[in-house]
Nucleic acid binder design. Structure first.
Length: 434
DNA sequence: TCTGGGGTCCTAGGACCC
DNA sequence: TCTGGGGTCCTAGGACCC
């Protein structure tokens, strides 16, 4: 008898409830809030550099535009169907996300912000609630207060809530809320879920499982636990148990500090000269230092990397990276950029067309908890960075920057169709032509 | 012509030590 | 000079997520 069947026979408890709230087509929905004429019209949002399609409205999905497709490949369908195109505007999306999360916090004390457009709510102690009704109310409130449509899935583990959420999103009759609280409903849902749609089963594992004729989440739950552990490791085993209703991935209520932090970009055009690479690496180094300062962290080491364009088969390829130790844990832009420049000079090779570069900081820790003996200039270093951050906060990013970041920045990323930062900029709102 | 960015965790394998 | 095996730690790379 399969493991899940044994659990079901024992009438294993399903009293624990976790909700997953997921914003529908989040970036596209954000653009619509301030441009209601776009309701019902197809929209896509592009990745950095206007490279790929990363969000599609329901109407755009219907046209057959694929997730992650390069913009230039979809351009024909887009133009033909008058699809509205936006470059990504993360200041806007980040701010709307915060509003959604603040609204959610009114409905449960246990909230885990999982990503920019998803959150888990713990419904422990909600035994007397009619969860279907309660979640519909949450959904209507988010729509009314923030303007974002969401889908809600509820079940007894995170992985099952994900499945419930998928069903709520895909089937109109659920009206945005799917609660799976009986084994009957869960089994039905597992049978409807393709294996590649299971949270934790990615591309490689689903190909592997399909070889064994495991095509749905239900098929997966019929397997032997030992076999799964042997072939898919502890993460595979966790996914299995979660699908069987045994919670293995707890709610993470206190967000822990980052362990690494990265800023990297593709260039809008190819770079060949070391001079331009130095400018870009300086810019990314300064930006990544600023990011960890915002979170009160310092870094111990870093990595600088460069790549040529691996899509271009005709050109000769080169990629390299270098790990660099910082003299002591720091978040000082000047020190980080200086070290990044030493790194890029070591790995740069002449005669290649570079497409992307980046800086990653490692060994992050709380600035307040490190008291180095070597950072003799800590106080002045902190006060300079504080001042820079305050000025840039008030007058805009990069008002003050390092000379090595450059002025022209001919390589800077392309954002041709970006909407105004409606909620975070004091500039007069500009009407977007549709 | 044009193909994103930022994370986490696990695992295998090498280096080193006893 | 040759020989064995086991443990730990670190790192790079892979797989996953959004």
């Amino acid at each position: 008898m399969s493991y899940i069947k044994q659990l079901q026979n024992k009438h294993s408890s399903l009293e624990n409830s976790i909700a997953l709230i997921d914003c529908n087509n989040f970036y596209a929905s954000c653009e619509r809030i301030f441009n209601p004429r776009l309701m019902g019209k197809p929209i896509v949002v592009l990745s950095n550099n206007d490279g790929c399609i990363i969000t599609r409205s329901a109407e755009a999905k219907k046209l057959g535009i694929k997730m992650g497709e390069p913009y230039f490949k979809a351009k024909k369908i887009i133009d033909k169907n008058n699809v509205k195109v936006f470059s990504s505007n993360y200041s806007l999306y980040g701010d709307i996300s915060q509003r959604v999360m603040e609204t959610l916090a009114r409905f449960a004390s246990d909230v885990e912000i999982y990503s920019i457009d998803e959150a888990f709510l713990g419904f422990n102690g909600f035994q007397n609630y009619e969860l279907q009704t309660y979640c519909s109310y949450i959904r209507r409130t988010i729509k009314k207060w923030v303007g974002i449509p969401v889908s809600i899935g509820v079940s007894s583990t995170k992985t099952l809530s994900k499945i419930a959420n998928n069903l709520a999103k895909k089937n109109k009759e659920y009206d945005g809320v799917c609660v799976l609280k009986s084994w009957l409903d869960i089994n039905e849902a597992l049978k409807l879920t393709p294996i590649e749609d299971v949270w934790g089963i990615g591309r490689r594992l689903s190909i592997f499982l399909q070889k064994y004729n495991i095509n749905t989440a239900y098929d997966f739950t019929q397997l032997d636990k030992g076999w799964i552990k042997k072939n898919m490791g502890v993460l595979g085993e966790k996914t299995f148990l979660e699908l069987c209703g045994i919670s293995c991935i707890e709610l993470d209520l206190i967000p822990s500090d980052k362990k690494s932090c990265c800023v990297s970009r593709s260039f809008s055009k190819k770079i060949e000269k070391i001079y331009d690479l130095e400018e870009s690496v300086s810019t990314y180094g300064a930006r990544v230092a600023e990011k960890i300062r915002e979170e009160g962290l310092v870094a111990e080491s870093m990595n600088v990397f460069i790549l040529t364009n691996y899509f271009n088969r005709k050109e000769k390829q080169y990629s390299n990276s270098i790990k660099l130790q910082l003299p002591y844990p720091t978040n000082n832009s000047i020190k980080i950029v200086k070290r990044a420049l030493e790194g890029i000079r070591k790995i740069y090779r002449e005669g290649y067309s570079y497409k992307k570069a980046g800086v990653i900081l490692y060994g992050l820790s709380r600035a307040s908890q490190t008291k180095g003996l070597l950072d003799y200039d800590r106080e002045s270093s902190e006060s300079i960075m504080n001042t820079v951050d305050r000025i840039n906060g008030r007058y805009g990013n990069s008002t003050i920057r390092l000379a090595s970041e450059g002025i022209k920045k001919s390589w800077i990323m392309k954002r041709e169709s970006v909407s105004p930062c409606y909620t975070t900029s004091f500039d007069d709102l500009v009407e977007v032509k549709t």
